[in-house]
């Protein structure tokens, strides 16, 4: 980190924070603090929705995913545009018609107070934990590669977000997200063109795609019906659809973005914008990762990209074994380079026979390299089982710190921290709103003025910000907390989505049947996870379908029996 990098990083982040505070001061009604005065245009809604979903991990992990496994991950997003259409056509008209401030308020109008309170509490548990992880995930990676103190970094990210989110509410979140998205896109474009410029002069963009394809990094689409492949076209349009529907349709951190739209149409167009741009954006981030792969075909790469992992093994009794693997790695890189030069020469001469032979040589070298890296990972694990051996989160940041010129390093760090802040801001904003409106205001006796509720919402937003910082600071004490958050998401999401679908599509089902079905489903989903009946990735669909079937069964039974069993 040069001084110029510090200046670029510091000035970018501080400008966004203080511009957000200055631009949105003086919210004195719940309407302006929670819905941003319902004045957002469609592009603000769209950018806000995209910035909320794109966290630091999107920019750290996705390029590394492409580096190791190619671009198949883009298929995970194929269900998202379909979910956007369903939300625009079904969810938004009802949210707007009932003029709700929170997603769960709708459930009271449709069912009853206990269903609203249950879903609000499920949201707070899940999103409260996730907000801590949104800060922790980039903090642990940046602290490992830059030597910064993990807790200090977590506290700084948290405080920067708290400053503008508490002060300006939803308006401040959307004002800053527009600037954060601008920084993110500019930074990623600079990185992309820098990589292209760093390749040998005779390697064009077209050639680099050919090289990536020859190394099996451009297998974008997979139409296999095998459920063991995590990312296929089919898993994308089914599992990805369910997940996107639950996340964008029922998670307040997203719902609050589009409820701030000036009209129903502006909200809908905002989500259409997201449905049109999300897949190209993810494709571009993955393409940056593939270009990093091509770059490392011409430049030396480490055996493992996580410096903490390398340090752990080199300071252990396995150092000698690791050195042998590293020598093998250098030899393989030399072999790959020979095969690569054969391939690019054959490409220029359009000698397809020689191209096929070179491709075979590259495939063999890649296979050996894969098993060599695998052996290195298991050696690191033996040396220290607490260190992260899967280095996909470290590939892009390693490339940034070791290859980008002065100034651009600071800009790319601003990209990563902006992404962390934009997601955290939406989460804290939603957590504060739900606590203040669904729990405090709904159950509070007496009449208070708007100013009181704005102050209360600010207070709860601040408290959730502090909780998120505390979670980020203690997260390293727990094993694999990041996966735990994903699992908790899967445990609750399906159930909540099912409740909303019941509200929209099954008008005859009433509150008691839904509430009992929801509690039963939640217990069964937790049981099926603890008994390992299915992978946690399927819990979403399981919970959603189960709660709908149970509620339909209970309501029908209730009507046939003439009602006594479920009256409370």
């Amino acid at each position: 980190m040069a001084i110029l990098d510090w200046i670029v990083l510091g000035s970018t982040l501080l400008f966004i924070v203080f511009y957000g505070v200055w631009k949105t001061k003086g919210s004195n009604s719940i309407e302006s603090y929670v819905k941003g005065g319902s004045s957002a245009k469609w592009w603000t809604v769209g950018l806000s929705v995209m910035a909320t979903q794109a966290s630091a991990i999107t920019f750290l992990s996705t390029p590394g995913q492409a580096y190791h496994d190619g671009m198949g991950f883009v298929q995970f997003y194929f269900g998202l545009p379909l979910a956007m259409i369903v939300i625009c056509a079904v969810f938004i008209p009802i949210y707007h018609k009932l003029k709700v401030y929170t997603a769960y308020e709708l459930l009271e109008q449709r069912f009853d107070l206990k269903t609203r309170t249950l879903t609000a509490l499920l949201f707070l548990v899940q999103r409260g934990l996730a907000a801590g992880i949104t800060i922790y995930a980039p903090a642990i990676i940046l602290s490992a590669v830059l030597g910064w103190d993990l807790k200090t970094l977590s506290i700084i990210i948290g405080i920067l977000v708290i400053i503008y989110t508490v002060s300006g509410g939803t308006s401040a979140v959307s004002v800053t997200q527009k600037q954060q998205m601008f920084v993110i896109m500019v930074g990623m474009f600079f990185a992309f063109f820098f990589i292209l410029g760093s390749l040998p002069s005779d390697i064009s963009f077209g050639n680099s795609l050919k090289i990536a394809g020859a190394n099996e990094k451009l297998n974008i689409l997979n139409f296999d019906f095998n459920t063991k492949n995590r990312y296929t076209f089919w898993s994308g349009i089914t599992g990805g659809f369910f997940l996107a529907l639950a996340y964008f349709g029922t998670d307040q951190s997203q719902v609050q973005r589009y409820l701030s739209g000036k009209s129903m149409r502006e909200s809908q167009l905002g989500l259409v914008f997201n449905g049109l741009l999300k897949i190209p954006m993810q494709f571009f981030i993955l393409l940056v990762g593939v270009m990093v792969f091509v770059f490392y075909q011409y430049n030396a790469s480490p055996l493992n990209f996580n410096p903490a992992a390398t340090e752990a093994v080199l300071n252990s009794s396995y150092a000698e074994d690791y050195q042998i693997l590293n020598d093998g790695h250098l030899e393989l890189e030399a072999q790959k380079k020979v095969a690569l030069n054969e391939y690019t020469s054959a490409l220029k001469l359009e000698d397809y026979g020689a191209m096929q032979r070179a491709k075979m040589n590259m495939a063999n070298a890649n296979l050996k390299e894969r098993s060599n890296r695998e052996a290195a990972r298991s050696l690191i694990n033996q040396a220290n089982e607490n260190v992260e051996t899967n280095d996909k989160d470290y590939v892009f940041i390693h490339f940034i710190l070791n290859n980008l010129p002065m100034g651009l390093v600071g800009l790319l760090l601003a990209v990563i921290l902006s992404a962390a802040m934009s997601s955290t801001a939406s989460e804290l904003n939603a957590l504060g709103t739900i606590t203040a409106l669904d729990l405090y205001k709904r159950n509070r006796k007496g009449d208070f003025n708007q100013k009181h509720y704005v102050m209360v919402t600010k207070g709860f937003t601040l408290i959730w910000g502090i909780i998120a910082i505390v979670i980020a600071c203690v997260a390293s004490l727990f094993d694999n907390l990041i996966q735990l958050v994903n699992i908790i998401g899967s445990i609750f999401y399906g159930n909540v989505l099912g409740i909303f679908l019941l509200a929209f599509f099954f008008k005859f089902v009433k509150g008691n049947a839904v509430f009992i079905a929801a509690l039963t489903t939640q217990a069964l989903v937790i049981l099926s996870y603890s008994q390992d009946w299915m992978s946690y990735l399927w819990l979403n669909a399981f919970g959603c379908i189960l709660v709908i079937l149970l509620a339909l069964f209970l309501e029908s039974l209730d009507r046939i029996m003439g009602s006594p069993p479920f009256k409370t």
Binding site: P81, V90, L209, L218, L269
Partner: peptide, 30 residues
């Protein structure tokens, strides 16, 4: 409620186009 709008058709068509484009990129570079 539940009105189909031309923007939704645009979302479907453009995303179908992206997938076709991905397929072409995949075929041309393999």
């Amino acid at each position: 409620n539940y009105v189909w709008k031309k923007e939704y058709t645009l979302v479907l068509l453009l995303n179908a186009l992206y997938i076709i484009l991905f397929y072409v990129i995949m075929i041309l570079n393999n």
